[in-house]
């Protein structure tokens, strides 16, 4: 028994170490001097931290524009996902059957199942006709479209927990559907809205393929900037690690906040019928 327990703990510690090491390594490389970054054996703790890499990253001509693009697109698409998603999630959670439910769920699952490139090729062509190529509005709409299914799956699980009786009594009191939804259902599902919002904004924040295809100079996002470091001939790992850290830190902070709901979000859509 003791033997088994210590084996379990060793496994957990090993797995935790492997899970966190790359994160630690990115952050530590981002605050290292060039000499320390390239030293062998690698310097894990014995180096003098510096903010040089960050100053050179922040002084990149377009850095702040790209950073604000990422934030605007993430917030915009998350907002749409919550508004549009909560309406549909409410319908799906409350009505086991209605006309159009099956095809709707089919489309939602198609987004989870199909490689995005299959849909993005035609979307690219269509958006250049519509003038939506390299526009933030265009990216917000496309991000929202791709993430709405995840918002719906997650929100459904919160709406399902609200007892129908509450709605029934509100209805007896004469509340309209809209009033009931905004005054009763949404406030009760507030924690769910927050968790879903954070989860969906993670998806948007991390998204790479959509902006790599759909964004030019105006609407580039942070992952595209991070990726562009790799195509430079001179690989300078310090600023690269700083860019990666800037992308990763908000995630680490946010996930600490939504720890409780994270598990539901991460497996959403996988086993739902």
């Amino acid at each position: 028994m003791i033997l088994k327990r210590s084996a379990s703990y060793s496994l957990l510690f090993l797995a935790s170490f492997l899970s966190l090491f790359p994160l630690f390594w990115t952050i530590s490389t981002s605050i290292k001097d060039r000499v320390d970054t390239y030293s062998l054996p690698p310097k894990f703790f014995s180096f003098t931290p510096t903010l040089k890499n960050y100053t050179s990253l922040f002084s990149l001509e377009k850095f702040w524009q790209i950073y604000s693009n990422s934030i605007i697109i993430t917030l915009g698409s998350t907002f749409i996902c919550l508004v549009v998603g909560s309406l549909a999630a409410y319908a799906l959670a409350r009505k086991p059957k209605f006309r159009g439910r099956t095809p709707l769920e089919g489309l939602m699952i198609a987004i989870r199942a199909l490689p995005a490139i299959v849909l993005l090729l035609p979307i690219y062509k269509l958006s250049s006709y519509l003038g939506l190529y390299d526009s933030k509005i265009g990216l917000i709409l496309i991000f929202a479209g791709f993430n709405i299914p995840f918002a719906i799956w997650l929100l459904m699980s919160f709406f399902e927990q609200i007892p129908v009786e509450i709605e029934e009594s509100a209805r007896v009191d004469g509340a309209s559907t809209f009033k009931m939804f905004t005054r009763i259902i949404l406030p009760l599902a507030a924690p769910g809205l927050v968790a879903t919002g954070i989860f969906v904004s993670l998806l948007s924040w991390n998204e790479f393929l959509i902006p790599v295809i759909m964004a030019g100079e105006n609407s580039k996002t942070l992952p595209v900037l991070v990726a562009s470091f790799i195509s430079n001939r001179t690989l300078d790992w310090g600023p690269m690690a700083a860019a990666a850290t800037v992308a990763l830190i908000p995630i680490v902070l946010l996930t600490v906040v939504i720890q409780r709901w994270l598990v539901a979000g991460l497996s959403s859509g996988a086993v739902k019928e």
């Binding site: 749409i80 508004v83 549009v84 998603g85 309406l87 549909a88 409410y90 319908a91 799906l92 409350r94 009505k95 209605f98 006309r99 159009g100 439910r101 709707l104 489309l107 939602m108 198609a110 987004i111 199909l114 299959v118 849909l119 993005l120 090729l121 035609p122 979307i123 269509l126 709409l141 496309i142 929202a144 479209g145 791709f146 709405i148 299914p149 719906i152 559907t177």
Partner: peptide, 20 residues
């Protein structure tokens, strides 16, 4: 209740149905 899914239909049409 069924009409609540209309906005979702619009978005999914834009990113899945029509592109496909």
């Amino acid at each position: 209740v069924a009409q609540l899914t209309i906005p979702t239909w619009i978005f999914l049409a834009l990113v899945v149905l029509i592109p496909f």
